[in-house]
Design a protein around this nucleic acid. Structure first.
Length: 465
RNA sequence: CGGGGCAUAGCGCAGUCUGGUAGCGCGUCUGGUUUGGGACCAGAAGGUCGCAGGUUCGAAUCCUGCUGCCCCGACCA
């Protein structure tokens, strides 16, 4: 806010798994972190409350939010993980526009079908345009413009872009906004069998993505809604404050998530994984079968609340047929491609992660998405011993590539503790005169509140790994 | 879209019934004392009371219209 200390490295995704190793440290005195002490009255659910209080977001209109620096960092980290797992599964990133022409949607028949949820606008020439609620039509248009042969398949294209759905009633902050960020992927295959494999790739990628975000997700049989199709799963995470009622077999909670050695091109291997993850009962209230659920052993029945964080569909030729996205098969005859689409809402995920991980004092970020890994709290700003000790920690951790936020404001210790707990960085290093007198700092873990006294050198060692 | 509610300083609120030109707490700024769980003292800044009309000598307050936002329900990543 008061000028950049240095230019942080621009971080393109797809730079490989270590692309986040570059340090991006910050001193609070130079940062823009508008913490609120009181909860704005409009915020009802905990994630909304905490995001406003922690200075992560600001509402600009009903269901429309600006991401402030702290919130933006989390959003970027979520997107980064989403992208890495999409890339790993063989999807290819591109970027489509937010504004679309109504023409495309008339081709698929959805311009009329979509209803008032679609934000319709006119340009200066009175042409019908719309702010995209999804991109099946557009990706199909792109596909049909270039792809003619089965030899170019399978293909999975994805992008991460803002979407707009004019919800009847936006609520719960980012959880049900009208504008939201979405990763949507679209797969193209020559036949249903290929499409099934593509579907399974995304299924496994989703399991991995949510696990890396620190979430336990459970795939559940789902309604297909306006996207259409007949094969669909919602990925649900359990959280007390979740919007929907869900029912599942307890064993899902202990299932092992596929490792990063999964061979995505091995159809049989993926089919086995997906088979396992769909073998037990799991359904949202819309698809709930009370009898089937009751048949489970009592100690295996989990009835809980959940948040939908991802949704995958196979819908065959629903768009390719009317829009004439056809490819020639080995026999030379043309046929419409089989498609699927696969969505994840990163902006909703930010809220969902908070719903799943917080306490009375504030957020508890999983390390993978924390806006910073470490907070250094100088408990006596201006102290002859605390200032240099903090400075050294800050420099050393930065040099080792640790995202660190140095709380260097002239505030009382209590206020710093409250701020640190609120913004929920995984680690706090408490540097005060009391500890330094014995050559120690205190390392506190936010997730369980545990603390440990150690030398600054040990603290650096501990936090840099 | 139906039902309820709110709109006064950055945030949380009082004042509206009973009209007389705006107040409290937190935050912000200045100076000082403080410093291991949201410190204290002194001083200061900050508001066309959501907007537009109307009634009145006079409107945050009464009347009319509009807008925005929140909550409950049906829809959704």
């Amino acid at each position: 806010m008061k000028g950049l200390v240095f230019c942080p490295p621009i971080r393109f995704h797809s730079a490989g798994p270590n692309s986040f190793d570059s340090a991006y440290p910050m001193r609070l005195s130079r940062y823009f972190l508008p913490i609120l002490r009181d909860t704005p009255k409009e915020a009802e659910i905990v994630s909304h409350r905490l995001m406003l209080r922690a200075g992560m977001i600001r509402q600009e209109a009903s269901g429309i939010y600006a991401f402030l620096p702290l919130g933006f960092r989390v959003l970027q980290k979520v997107c980064q993980i989403v992208r890495e797992e999409q890339d790993r599964a063989g999807a290819i990133e591109l970027l489509m526009p937010t504004i679309q022409s109504a023409e495309l949607w008339r081709e698929s028949g959805r311009y009329e079908a979509y209803g008032k949820e679609m934000l319709r606008i006119k340009d200066r020439h009175e042409r019908d345009m719309l702010y995209g609620p999804t991109n099946e039509e557009m990706i199909t248009e792109i596909f049909r413009a270039y792809v003619r042969s089965y030899k170019d398949l399978p293909l999975n294209l994805y992008h991460v872009q803002w979407k707009f759905r004019d919800e009847i009633r936006p609520r719960f902050g980012l959880m049900r906004g009208r504008e939201f960020l979405m990763k949507d992927a679209y797969s193209f295959d020559i036949d249903q069998e290929g499409a099934r494999h593509s579907y399974n790739k995304m299924f496994v990628a989703y399991l991995r993505t949510f696990a890396r975000l620190g979430l336990k997700s459970i795939p559940m049989v789902a309604e297909t809604g306006p996207i259409g199709g007949n094969l669909s799963h919602e990925f649900i995470i359990l959280a007390d404050t979740g919007e929907s009622e869900v029912f599942c077999h307890r064993d899902y909670l202990g299932f092992e998530v596929p490792g990063d050695n999964v061979k995505f091109d091995d159809a049989a291997e993926l089919e086995a994984i997906v088979g396992k993850w769909t073998s037990l009962y799991a359904a949202t209230s819309e698809k709930h079968d009370a009898k089937a659920f009751a048949a489970l052993a009592a100690d295996k029945q989990v009835s809980a609340r959940g948040i939908e964080v991802g949704h995958i569909f196979y819908f065959g030729t629903k768009y390719s047929a009317p829009m004439k996205a056809v490819v020639a098969g080995p026999d030379g005859t043309e046929r419409p491609v089989h498609m699927g689409s696969y969505g994840i809402g990163p902006s909703r995920l930010v809220a969902a992660i908070i719903e799943a991980s917080h306490d009375e004092a504030g957020i508890k970020w999983p390390e993978a998405v924390a806006p910073f890994k470490v907070a250094i709290l100088n408990l006596k700003q201006g102290g002859a011993d605390t200032d240099p000790a903090c400075e050294q920690l800050y420099q050393a951790l930065s040099a080792k590539g640790v995202d660190v936020l140095y709380h260097d404001l002239d505030e009382r210790p209590g206020a710093k503790f409250a701020t640190a707990d609120l913004i929920g960085l995984p680690w706090q290093v408490l540097v005060g005169p009391r500890g330094l007198a014995e050559g120690k700092v205190e390392v506190k873990r936010r997730s369980d509140g545990s603390r440990e006294l150690m030398s600054p050198a040990d603290a650096i060692e501990r936090l840099a790994t």
